[in-house]
């Protein structure tokens, strides 16, 4: 905005961030690296939710459904077929995309609070299914899964150790995140913002609003399934709690705290939420809700555009995608 052209400044920051992420194993201990891996994976999941909430104005309270379907698909493939990561990812993306299409078909016909409650309902129904379908999911006990491998066949090129998995997760994150960025920059992404801002106008311009909504719902679901696949490959375990209400709200909170319609805000918000959760649970033990509540109230009053709105507020960087505070969510 001042010395550097905004586009160049943003690109420099991006390069520096990627370089920093690439060097992370040298800088962080095992525990922190594990946390960072978690944050990247959850950040990708939250960014896929931002595609719905931030860009399209579709407030989903059940996004964990698609993360969970992806996780279970990967877990089941790894247990019964092969522990190859690509097979796991393919199964996850495909199955969560299909489930997103089936549920989204109903959900996108509704608006606002109805959409919110319907997405919550789908997630809760899948959560209950995961608990009760004991023969497939082992219910609340969950499924331990074998360590993932990169090579063909079982056991070849095992992703052993935190550093190896971190680099695998980083590459996967960059691919997923890059895909989301390409989508929001495309004419399709611009159309989504148009639908959020003024649905009636987009309709009168001849856009099939319902079809766009369904398409973005499926894409967001498939990317969430991708993140779900990574989640299981990282933790080597899947249980119904991976689909729970808490996971959906945590992602929504990450998007809001990080800043809507920015994608990168979702990742920042995830980092904030994970770090604060770890710190709070030790510092405040049972009163973490009180602190979290105060954080929410503070964010709404003080940071209307979330954490990623901070640089713009202080004039460090200009934002490439202008969003109205609040949108039409």
């Amino acid at each position: 905005m001042r010395a550097l052209a905004p586009g160049r400044a943003a690109r420099l920051v991006q390069l520096a961030l990627v370089a920093l992420l690439a060097m992370a194993p040298l800088l962080l201990g095992d525990f922190r690296l594990f946390l960072l891996t978690e944050i990247l994976i959850f950040g990708l999941f939250a960014a896929s939710l931002d595609l719905l909430v931030g860009y399209t104005g579709l407030l989903s309270l059940g996004h964990a459904a698609y993360l969970g379907v992806g996780s279970y698909a990967t877990a089941l493939i790894a247990i019964h077929l092969t522990d190859n990561v690509f097979a796991g990812i393919a199964a996850a993306v495909l199955s969560s995309g299909v489930v997103a299409a089936a549920t989204g078909w109903l959900a996108v016909r509704t608006r606002g609070v109805y959409f919110l409650m319907l997405t919550l309902a789908f997630a809760q129904l899948l959560f209950t299914l995961a608990i009760t379908w004991d023969s497939l999911t082992h219910g609340a006990n969950g499924l331990p899964t074998p360590k993932p491998t990169l090579g063909p066949g079982d056991g070849g090129g095992a992703l052993d150790g935190g550093t190896a998995f971190y680099y695998y997760a980083l590459v996967a994150f960059l691919i997923g995140f890059g895909l989301l960025r390409a989508i929001v920059a495309s004419p399709f992404g611009r159309t989504l913002v148009g639908i959020r801002e003024n649905e009636a106008r987009m309709r009168s311009l001849g856009y099939g609003v319902a079809r766009y909504r369904l398409a973005v719902f499926c894409i967001a679901g498939a990317v969430a399934g991708f993140a779900g696949s990574l989640t299981v490959q990282h933790s080597n375990y899947m249980s119904p709690s991976g689909i729970s209400f808490e996971v959906s709200t945590l992602a929504l909170i990450a998007v809001i705290i990080g800043g809507r319609a920015t994608l990168v805000g979702a990742v920042l918000g995830s980092a904030f939420v994970f770090i604060i959760r770890d710190e709070l649970s030790s510092a405040f033990n049972e009163h973490w809700r009180l602190v979290l509540g105060v954080v929410f109230i503070g964010v709404v009053y003080l940071l209307p555009r979330g954490l990623s709105g901070l640089p713009a507020r202080t004039g460090l960087l200009s934002r490439r995608i202008q969003t109205t505070a609040g949108g039409s969510a």
Partner: peptide, 11 residues
């Protein structure tokens, strides 16, 4: 928007 009010009341 709704989201800010929902977040505030949830807090």
């Amino acid at each position: 928007g709704h989201l800010d009010q929902a977040l505030l009341t949830l807090g």
